[in-house]
């Protein structure tokens, strides 16, 4: 009997954590409890920034993390947060198919193995005022928390503000920040309607969480257990994508029900954002080099 620990960063009732719990259950059932995975949700074992390192050095055998968190280390981890490159679940799936082997290769070079990746809901803009074009975004107090959001802020002429996620609610309430980007789901979880009233469903990008194992820990399993694990992983990936596709409309309805003005971006705003997206894709390609170009070429085919 083998016991694995799986640190994850999001609360236990987040769909990602729920999916992980089901995955752990599947694995236990398929191996007759020979492999037991304990999910430590809510950053209760390791915090998000440390999870990859913990798996890499064998402190835990398996972990889940937001893939783009590691984009500074290798641009391939950030392929799914290039704004307006893949804006629907269908496109996102296609992008994942095109980029998967590159991500697998990168992880393998670090002694890890990818099991599966599951998307979040598409990213939109939360604001305290009407945004009819990108010109309206000029001067916004814009939360910049990674390379992409900082670049967008820069390109639209917003004022980038550094605020940690933990302080965001207060920062919005007191006016330190008045616009930021995240998904309808995260906005719903953090009760965004208490301090902002507009949500633009720009579907800017669809980030993913990836679940991966330490290769040595995986190799130590016997063949039937390995197969059971991979099978449960494939099932978790399918289930996870379906969960989020089904739920993303529900989240938009919830924001509406709470009194937020939920709308698609005006053609003008969309056009302006698209242009910024092209600029950012070019930025990303420059960083990602030949490998990145191959991924984008495969995706656009």
């Amino acid at each position: 009997q083998t016991k694995w620990n799986l640190p994850a960063a999001y609360p236990a009732d987040n769909p990602h954590s729920e999916n992980l719990a089901l995955f752990a259950k599947d694995v236990a059932a398929a191996t007759g409890d020979k492999l037991q995975i304990t999910v430590h949700a809510n950053a209760s074992l390791f915090k998000a920034p440390d999870i990859k390192r913990a798996v890499q050095t064998g402190q835990v055998q398996i972990g889940e993390v937001l893939m783009s968190l590691h984009e500074n280390e290798d641009p391939i981890y950030g392929v799914d947060v290039v704004p307006f490159l893949a804006t629907s679940f269908a496109e996102s799936k296609k992008l994942w198919a095109a980029s998967r082997s590159a991500v697998e290769k990168k992880l393998a070079s670090q002694g890890m193995m990818l099991l599966f990746a599951v998307p979040w809901a598409p990213q939109g803009i939360y604001a305290k005022k009407d945004l009819n074009s990108v010109e309206d975004m000029k001067g916004l107090k814009w939360r910049a928390y990674n390379v992409g959001t900082a670049r967008i802020g820069e390109l639209v002429g917003a004022q980038s503000v550094t605020v940690q996620a933990a302080e965001l609610a207060q920062a919005l309430a007191t006016g330190v920040v008045n616009a930021f980007m995240t998904s309808a789901a995260t906005g719903y979880d953090s009760k965004a309607w208490e301090s902002v009233d507009h949500f633009y469903d720009t579907q800017a990008w669809i980030p993913k969480n990836m679940t991966f194992v330490n290769k040595a820990a995986f190799d130590a399993l016997d063949k039937p257990t390995q197969d059971a694990l991979l099978k449960a992983a494939a099932a978790a990936e399918t289930r996870g994508w379906k969960m989020w596709e089904d739920k993303s409309g529900w989240y938009l309805d919830q924001l509406k029900a709470k009194g937020m003005k939920v709308q698609a971006p005006s053609p003008q705003l969309q056009a302006g954002l698209k242009k910024i997206g092209e600029q950012l894709t070019a930025d990303w390609l420059k960083k990602a080099g030949a490998g990145g170009e191959a991924v984008i070429a495969a995706y656009k085919k």
Binding site: N42, A166, E194, S195
Partner: peptide, 19 residues
Amino acid sequence: PPSIPMVVYAVTANVSVLQ
């Protein structure tokens, strides 16, 4: 308020920090 553990709790329980 303000309170660090309240922020942690609110994030954990998915409730409003302000509340």
